[in-house]
Design a protein around this nucleic acid. Sequence first.
DNA 1: GATTTACTTGAGTGATTGCTCAAATATATA
DNA 2: TATATATTTGAGCAATCACTCAAGTAAATC
Lengths: 194, 194
Amino acid sequence: MGRLKEFELQEALGKAMNVFWKKGYDKTSLKDLLTEMDILNGSFYNTFGNKKSLFLKTLEFYGEEITAKRANHLTTNESFKVGIRSLFEDVFKCFSDKKTPRGCLLVNSLSSELLKDQEVLNFVQTEIANFEEFFFIQLEQAVDSGELDKSINPKLTASILVTYIQGLMKLSSLEISSSKLEKQTSHFLEVIGL
Amino acid sequence: MGRLKEFELQEALGKAMNVFWKKGYDKTSLKDLLTEMDILNGSFYNTFGNKKSLFLKTLEFYGEEITAKRANHLTTNESFKVGIRSLFEDVFKCFSDKKTPRGCLLVNSLSSELLKDQEVLNFVQTEIANFEEFFFIQLEQAVDSGELDKSINPKLTASILVTYIQGLMKLSSLEISSSKLEKQTSHFLEVIGL
DNA sequence: GATTTACTTGAGTGATTGCTCAAATATATA
DNA sequence: TATATATTTGAGCAATCACTCAAGTAAATC
C-alpha cells in the first residue's frame, strides 16, 4: 500500500485557505503555500494537482467551515430577526479577530483574471446563489409564520442582503472602522424591515 | 529643452487604467501596460516612476473621470430620487457595455496584499470617504428641502448606499445577471425610502 | 525478507516578473 | 550651427513564478 502521508489533508487545506484569504490567489506563491502547509513540492503536486485545483478545494472548505457555520445562526435561533443579528455579530467578531483575515475569502482572493476561469467562476456563482437561496427560504418562513411583515419580499430582500454583505466584506478589507460598519448594519436591518 | 514626449499623458493614463481595471493590479504586467499604452520601457519609468506609482495615478484618474461623472447625476437632476436612479442607470449601462470592464476599478484591482501598502490604502479610504460624504450632503439637502422623509438618517443612509454599491460592483464582476441586479436595486431604493 | 507501491525530497526547468542603464535620437536655446 | 537637455530605444538584470522529475524512503502485501 506504499508509504503513508505525513500530513493531515484537512489541516493542510485549512492552512492553505488562510494564505489565499490573507494574500489573495495571485499574490499567494507556491513557496507561501508550502511554507504554511509545511509540506514539500512533490507532496503538494502529488496530493493537490496544482495551485488552481488546491484553490478550488479551499473554496469548498470555506463554504463548509465558514459560510455553513454562519448560516447556522439563522437556523438555530428562534426568530429571523435574532438570527440575522447573530450572524452579523459573528461577522463583526471576525473583523476584530486578528487571527482571521478581514473580509471574505470569495471577496478577497478572487482577481478579475481568475474569474475568467470558467471552473472558478461557476463555483463562486453557485456558492453565492446557494447563500441567497438560503436567505430566501429563511425569509419566506419568517414571513409566512407572521414574524416578519407581509410587505417584505423574500426574494428581493435575500438578494439585497447578499449584495450588502459583499459590500461589507469589501469595506472591511479596506480597514473601515468595524464599529462604524456595525452601526450602519444595525440601521440597515431596521430600515429594510428585519 | 530636449526631445518632446511622443505620447499624450492623459491618454496613456486612461489606457493604463483600463488594463488595471480589467486584469487587476497583480495580474497586470509591465508588458501588458507597455503594449496597451504603446510606449517603451524607458519612457514608462521616465514618466511614471514605477508600476505602483502609475497605479496610484490611474486611481486618481478614475476618481476624476468615472466617479465624478457619476456624482453629477445627483447634482444635475432636479431631485435626489431622480438623481440616484439616474446614477444607478449609468452604472448598469456600464455593466452592459462590453468596452467598459465590469465592476469598479477600486473593487476589481485591489488585492489584499496591495492594500497593505499604506499609500494605496490611504488613497482608497479617502476616495470612499469622499464618495460617502457626497451622498451625505445630497441626502441632507433632500431631507431639509422636504423632498425626502424626515425619518431618513442622511449619515447612515449614505454609508449604506456606499456599502451596497460596493457589493453591487463585486457581484457584477461575478457576472451576475445585470437585469437581476437592476430589479433588486430598484427595490432596495424603495425600501430604504429613496 | 523481497517486492510493490505511495509519498517525500530537493535540485532544477523555462518563462516571466518589475526594473536598470547606456547609447541613440530629437528638440529648444545660445 | 553647436550645445544642453529630455525622451526613446532595446538589451539585459536578478528574482521569482508555477511546476517537473529522478532518486530516496517508508509502509503493506506476498
